[in-house]
Design a protein around this nucleic acid. Structure first.
Lengths: 155, 155
DNA sequence: TACTGATAGTCAGTATGCTTGTCAATTGAG
DNA sequence: CTCAATTGACAAGCATACTGACTATCAGTA
């Protein structure tokens, strides 16, 4: 019986668990209430005006259904606007509000700090190395995920 | 604004997402229905006879409450037994059943394959390197997690 | 133009993963 | 020994993450 602690799957879960906790703690310390998923969604919406939910989901490699809920909460907090697209009435166009933009700016340094904190056990060289390998592993197995990353079509 | 795709937190989530999907697919292909968390719990129970839930949670670095639900499902599937401890009537002693042990054995090669599959983009040397760095990063930030790993007391 | 297939979003359902709060049992300080 | 603090488990609640099914809409075609 192989040891659980040596399995990549277990290490992946542990590292992600730490990443989420660190993110949450930093953002909370900044006096805000935003999860890492909500942050990723908000930041992506701010870079793509009028993006629809399905495209957003693809860009941050999330399930359509999950994003529905995330967008609900962001809308409820007044951080984004959601309206039916005029070109495609099935789709919802998303846009960041001024409140959302302001929050993104204020929160940014804390997000930065969280990213460094979760790598505090590694030297800069090691951190760089690990991120490179993670990116490589992810790219090679992107299609194995249930919600693979989908590059945005040239708009 | 820093790119989301370069953030360790984002990479951590993506890799974990892939790991879970690969695990699920392999186990399903084996004709079983067991999540990665359930597997970790079951394997750990099989190695620690009569372990209580809190210790189990600590060993696989999970929240106590989460493990309660996981144990519920394992019990419902007939894979483990749960009974009140005679030494500490607050605690529940867990033990694997014959069905559970058999399932663990049958499932093992598929779990192995899943672990390799999620690293398919890396050379053996790179994989080794990434796992080493992950372990190092996790060890250094274990206490930042909400559910840190707790070594079992010498029993 | 009517039909077909694909797509956007939602709903219902399952399983984590965490928080807070509660209860009962245990333990340790005095 | 007694009382307070701690601990194991559970309940309720929120936020991911996914599956499968369903509706509305759209786009291409016969």
């Amino acid at each position: 019986m192989k040891d659980i602690y040596d399995m990549p799957g277990h290490l992946a879960r542990r590292f992600q668990q730490i990443a989420v906790a660190v993110f949450q703690a930093e953002v909370e310390q900044a006096g805000y209430d935003l999860t890492s998923v909500q942050y990723a969604a908000l930041a992506t919406v701010s870079l793509h005006k009028g993006i629809d939910q399905a495209t957003l989901a693809g860009l941050i490699a999330h399930d359509r259904t999950t994003i529905g809920g995330v967008v609900d909460r962001l809308e409820q907090k007044g951080l984004i606007l959601r309206r039916t697209s005029s070109r495609d009435r099935r789709a919802r166009e998303l846009d960041i509000t001024d409140t959302g933009r302001m929050m993104l700016e204020k929160i940014e340094p804390y997000v930065e700090r969280a990213q460094q904190l979760m790598l505090r056990g590694l030297s800069p060289g090691e951190a760089e190395q690990m991120l490179r390998l993670l990116r490589k592993a992810i790219a090679a197995s992107n299609d194995l995920s249930r919600a693979p990353l989908k590059e945005a079509a040239a708009s």
